[in-house]
Design a protein around this nucleic acid. Structure first.
Lengths: 425, 425
DNA sequence: CTGTTAGCGCATTCAA
DNA sequence: TTGAATGCGCTAACAG
């Protein structure tokens, strides 16, 4: 996950066996590692030449190449990346600083970042902040000291000085997932507003009128945007503002549990819950269980963020974000910026989210409102995708745990903004 | 998760605001980062002195210290870790190379490693091999080139040259979780044999006679050891070898699914399954579902490796390994070895596993064998822990998803071997 | 195509 | 207590 194989040209399988194992070269004590000049003397060449063939620079004769390779193999030479980096003042290293890599959404981002980076010969370091600004700052400082070439940042909740610190030290940044700062930074994220709109409209189309949204921290752009989408969907359906039920909390299981409990205790209980992210959903599900409330039947639930469909929760209707693409795109943007000389305008890319309908959302059981809307409305411009596994009838215990194929076709939730001319592989 | 805050002495909050923001020092172009000599000239001192105060070496006058700190703050100086490492030929960096950090067991190890390392001022790099020896080798090479001080290795399935490569380059190693090599390495792992024995004995005590074990690769020590524990428990209960049902596969969900399907299709179906690890268990559960077989009622299932009890699978009876401790101990061993000069004997530490009984294991429904053994046997020397949440009656759908407290008390499954005199905090 | 010469930024001798 | 000098291992001008 962290260090890609060094793509150096000389890196054929080291045929160490070609050298007599007991050989103890006079200029190499047992544990001292061979250096460039070691192999230079062994090969009877200068360090520059050796350096050239090791780095695959052209301008080397076949004979020189052969002798160097021979010496490299013989001594088991491994270039000292530190020295190389110090000299060239480029580390070919990126950092991804994020909230919680255990969260599937961020894991997806991380994969995208690593794949893109590795494809360009970059190594990436992953740093978990656990939503702590102090951790974030600490990591950032460490990364600057390590002279990473650039940083991909998913800022923690009240992150403030981070961008300034980075820019102060001339470290290029791309901000992921969450809006940050005055806009003078490259950014990549999914469309929170549009995704939330889709989700809530879906619930409305099922006949729900009292829908609660369990959002994250009010100070986070994703929370605000998702609430905006929620509001838009309600407004569009002429559902009065007094029917709104908006709770701000944290993006944690505990907070989801707590918010759900509050909702269930309140007088006018909603018929559907829109969870602001996957952790909140997990907590919400637990709260429902503990109250003996069945999802779908008694309470519809839709999640922002899809969950891994492997073994446990394959029944949740969810807004899916293109996590992998976010990471990949962000890495490419960053690397591109590293390649050029400063003249790029800050770019903001918003990728479409989409809705995957499964079994956790159903028409409300006993509602005073009208039933589901016309089929036309459902089949209309709603950019949703109905998961075949969501359609299995009579969801018994076992059926509930049935796996669901991952290859869900995603549909656009909103237009892409400002994609610019990023060159992808 | 990756880069701990640098614990450098000089690292007070940078009071950059104390310097006039528009100040453009003549010796610093905008983006060039300040160096030691920059702050030396600014402070009117030599680089040596500056280096000393920055590194907290004693032998510095208060006045010098003050002036340096002032200059550091003014210039926003960040030491160049690369140069520092190159010079001192110590990176203060460890690497944890493992199979799959998404697996909760390894995540636990990773946390232990990081905490221990950070406590000692070390940074740790995480590398995922996905059970690929090529990836493993690639990472190892990269790490050697980066001159990490030491490596913590969870070797991939048929890992072979890794140890040699590392030792060839004089990089200290500790092998985690899986036995490897001729034994001339430090190793830390949990007691697989003992844990498996406990699990299977538990099933036998419940009355099971036909128990299948779904093991990992036959070439892996953990698989072999767990099968050994399985055999011992059966033998102890005088259950004939012909009743054994041993399947070797992979530590993956897919393999678990496949092995379970095979078992279900076979003539004499077992009444209980012992899954060799958590991934296999996940696959087994899916296979059971797809065959309409209820766990516990129709088929008991016990897992090696506990799963995160957060939201999804709080009902599995499991063998719990002290993952965090494994990581922590391993890191301490490694760091200790780095501190001393080579004279340490290789040490092997085997930590006890324990059994946590929950609801997925129950007496067989219709068995020709005798019922459960006497209460005495159950309450006897079995070092198991009964999870209170495992006792809830009538596991309906919702109850099945009920959360379970994480604070399970672990009980020893086997004695600790060769702990030696490791100094822990 | 190759060798010589200079540092990258820092820690660390050795003198003062 | 401080400063001057040296080199960690490597790349990048330059000349040849």
């Amino acid at each position: 996950m962290l260090l890609p194989t060094q793509p150096a040209a000389w890196q054929g399988k080291e045929n160490r066996q070609s050298a007599p194992p007991e050989r103890q070269d006079s200029f190499r004590t047992s544990n001292d590692r061979a250096t460039l000049s070691d192999i230079a003397t062994l090969a009877g060449l200068s360090t520059s030449t050796v350096s050239r063939v090791v780095n695959g620079s052209r301008c080397t004769s076949p004979t020189a190449r052969a002798r160097v390779q021979q010496a490299v193999a013989e001594l088991g030479y491994m270039p000292n990346v530190l020295a190389r980096q110090l000299r060239s003042s480029r580390t070919k290293t990126l950092a991804l600083v994020l909230i919680d890599i255990a969260n599937p959404f961020f894991t997806g981002i991380a994969r995208g970042v690593e794949d893109a980076a590795r494809a360009q010969g970059y190594t990436v370091m992953f740093c978990n902040t656990d939503e702590s600004v102090d951790e974030e700052m600490g990591y950032l400082r460490g990364l600057i000291q390590r002279r990473v070439d650039g940083v991909l940042l998913v800022p923690a909740v009240n992150s403030r000085g981070s961008l300034e610190l980075l820019q102060q030290h001339g470290v290029p940044v791309v901000v992921l997932d969450r809006r940050l700062g005055s806009g003078q930074v490259d950014q990549v994220r999914a469309d929170s507003e549009g995704g939330a709109y889709l989700a809530v409209r879906h619930l409305i189309e099922l006949g729900h009128r009292r829908i609660a949204i369990l959002a994250g921290p009010e100070s986070l752009s994703t929370s605000v945007d998702r609430v905006d989408g929620y509001k838009r969907a309600l407004a569009e359906a002429s559902i009065g503002a007094r029917s709104q039920q908006i709770l701000f909390g944290e993006y944690t299981e505990g907070s989801g549990y707590e918010m759900t409990s509050r909702i269930l205790a309140a007088p006018s209980r909603p018929t559907a819950i829109f969870a602001g992210n996957n952790s909140i959903a997990l907590g919400a599900l637990q709260a429902l269980r503990d109250s003996g409330i069945h999802y779908a039947d008694d309470m519809s639930i839709v999640v922002f963020d899809d969950l891994p469909q492997g073994g446990s929760l394959p029944f949740l209707t969810a807004v899916s974000q293109p996590a992998y693409e976010i990471g990949k795109l962000a890495a490419y943007m960053l690397i591109e910026r590293l390649a050029t000389e400063e003249p790029l305008e800050p770019r903001v890319i918003v990728l479409p989210s989409s809705l995957i309908v499964r079994r956790s959302s159903a028409p409300p059981r006993l509602t005073s409102s009208a039933g589901p809307r016309s089929a036309k409305a459902i089949a209309g411009p709603a950019r949703t995708h109905r998961d075949p596994n969501g359609l299995h009838p009579s969801p018994g215990l076992l059926a509930n745990l049935r796996p669901c194929p991952t290859g869900s076709t995603l549909t656009k939730a909103s237009p892409v903004a400002g994609t610019g001319s990023l060159k992808l592989p």
